[in-house]
Design a protein around this nucleic acid. Structure first.
Ligand code: FES
Ligand code: FES
Lengths: 159, 159
DNA sequence: CGAAATCAGGACCGTTGCGGTCCCCTTATC
DNA sequence: GATAAGGGGACCGCAACGGTCCTGATTTCG
């Protein structure tokens, strides 16, 4: 339902936490600081490490640290690390799993939509989510716009 | 995994088909024209009718017809009809299902991301997906950009 | 008026993927 | 060598999705 997994949510929390305090932090420590269950934090960190978003150091006094600062990590990277590459439908770009590609009326038709969503997600970094006062316009201003009353950037034209 | 349901894909196919040919079409007819299994087409149309995106007429010589023309239906509407309202995480805006809202470091933090994605999806209409030559830039041009080589509109600034 | 056509609404079930936990091994510090 | 920490899985319950089917209500046509 166009919903990203809970692990992604946790990943953002963990990453933001890594951006504060000591450079190297252990997963139990992060779990305690964020309130997320420790096994889950460990799982998330393992995935993030595999994706190269955090660096790990084993052994006693080990832990995790950020590779890039928060403002250099777009959420799209987190989502791609946890949920896999952003592909709204089964057949985007090199989608091989589509039967009857020759006849399907939707062949390649979702690609622009996918690009638009991806662009939106690349444009927001973890730093943006860490503290609204820092990079976003005043929250009150955003709220005042109301739901769906958005000035639309001409995404599909721009690309 | 940030994937929308297959039914949504089918819904787009069906809607685009409704935009061509006769004004009123039956579900078996649409199924035959699109290649989508008939029961699935019927299910999709029922949902779309309930959402007010298509109008139905019962009895012999009945069928479905579009309420709004294709260029007045953003994909966001289709997604909202099939997959429910666009909510990347459990706790967006009025998300009531979140425990410990007072302490959660992510409270309301996903809202701007959600808005950005929603804006991207409102900005593309079914007419845009119906025929690339009509509203999009030349497909070759879009393909030439390559994956991820996107000029980013400053979404989070714009809103 | 009866029969046929068509939508309405929901029940049903197999499959898939997610969420969450746990275990054992490797690595590094002390 | 003992201990602290990450690495890499396996494992299972659950909820959602997908696809199908059935029964009933409504309208047109003969
Ligand atoms: S569904 Fe993939 S090309 Fe048609
Ligand atoms: S997860 Fe919903 S407010 Fe924290």
């Amino acid at each position: 339902m166009l919903r990203l997994s809970k692990l992604t949510d946790y990943a953002v929390v963990v990453m933001v936490r890594l951006g504060r305090g000591e450079a190297v932090q252990t997963s139990p420590c992060i779990a305690a600081a964020t309130g997320v269950p420790e096994p889950t934090v460990a799982k998330v960190l393992k995935i993030l490490a595999a994706a190269g978003l955090v660096a790990s150091h084993r052994g006693a006094r080990g832990g995790y640290r950020l590779v890039r600062p928060l403002d250099a990590v777009p959420i799209a990277d987190i989502i791609a690390a946890i949920d896999g590459p952003i592909a709204l439908t089964a057949c985007v770009d090199g989608g091989t799993s589509c039967e009857a590609q020759g006849l399907c009326p939707m062949r390649g038709r979702w690609d622009p939509v996918n690009r638009a969503v991806e662009a939106a997600l690349v444009g927001i970094t973890l730093a943006d989510m860490a503290d609204p006062a820092l990079t976003f316009a005043a929250p009150a201003e955003a709220a005042a716009l109301g739901p769906l009353a958005l000035p639309l950037p001409a995404l599909h034209v721009a690309e």
